[in-house]
């Protein structure tokens, strides 16, 4: 009964083999490309329509696009402060990418964020941004002196605190989305046919939509907070 229960990462496109270990494009790569393709097409579509945008929006599409951009700038400004408005151009697309990849569970794809590689890569970008902007705004000595605050004996604890950020960021997103994927896979394989009519939608509502949107919001807001507190 549990033979067809699989939520693991398969490798549809095998490229080459190195002493018994196959390398190639896994389902995560394929789904990531799908998500990025969708976002790029949306971007190109907006650019095509950009010509006939007017200062007073008359088409619903323009209102939607402006809502998206303004909403995200307001969100960035409220989290990082007025002077960091430019970060919304970076964190907006990241927000959309994570949101869309969390929601791919609805259309039957395996979410790319249910793979530690994706989430760890995303949290590493935050980690290196924190270091870069910290050093840029406070100077090399100034920023790393903070690891000895308030009393030098706390240095190892501060270092672990700093290193634990990318770990907790990536594991939080990964764990939640993987948990949701496992539950849905279990539900679909185990339940008899009549239970598959109404109830999965409720489960999807909780895991894919509620948890997906919440985790996206948490990941981006935490990243912004870490970067802006490094720049303080």
């Amino acid at each position: 009964m549990d033979s067809n229960l699989d939520f693991g990462i398969k490798m549809p496109i095998k490229l080459f083999e190195v002493d018994g270990q196959w390398f190639g494009f896994t389902t995560t790569h394929v789904n990531t490309v799908i998500v990025i393709l969708a976002l790029t097409l949306f971007g190109l579509f907006v650019r095509a329509k950009l010509k006939n945008f007017k200062t007073i929006p008359d088409t619903k599409f323009q209102v939607f696009v402006e809502l998206l951009v303004d909403g995200f700038e307001a969100f960035t400004m409220s989290t990082m402060g007025e002077k960091n408005k430019k970060f919304s151009m970076f964190y907006g697309p990241i927000f959309l990418f994570i949101l869309l990849s969390n929601l791919t569970g609805l259309v039957g794809l395996r979410p790319p964020t249910a793979d530690i590689a994706t989430t760890f890569a995303l949290s590493l970008t935050t980690f290196f941004m924190v270091q870069m902007y910290g050093v840029r705004s406070k100077g090399f000595g100034g920023y790393y002196k903070e690891l000895f605050e308030p009393v030098p004996v706390l240095f190892p604890l501060n270092v672990i605190g700093e290193l634990s950020n990318p770990v907790s960021l990536s594991f939080r997103l990964f764990g939640n989305i993987l948990g949701g994927t496992i539950i849905m896979a279990l539900y679909y394989t185990m339940m008899p046919w009549f239970a598959l009519i109404g109830i999965p939608s409720v489960l999807h509502l909780y895991f894919d939509i509620f948890a997906g949107v919440l985790q996206t919001f948490i990941f981006v807001m935490l990243s912004m907070t870490f970067v802006s507190s490094a720049m303080e």
């Binding site: 990082m80 604890l157 634990s164």
Partner: peptide, 24 residues
């Protein structure tokens, strides 16, 4: 004071995280 409150909360939460990281 929301952004300051959130920043302090997260800083404290990160420090509180360490024993969880030790266990992991």
């Amino acid at each position: 004071a929301q952004s300051d409150v959130v920043r302090t909360m997260l800083l404290g939460a990160a420090v509180a995280e360490t024993t969880g990281i030790y266990g992991l």
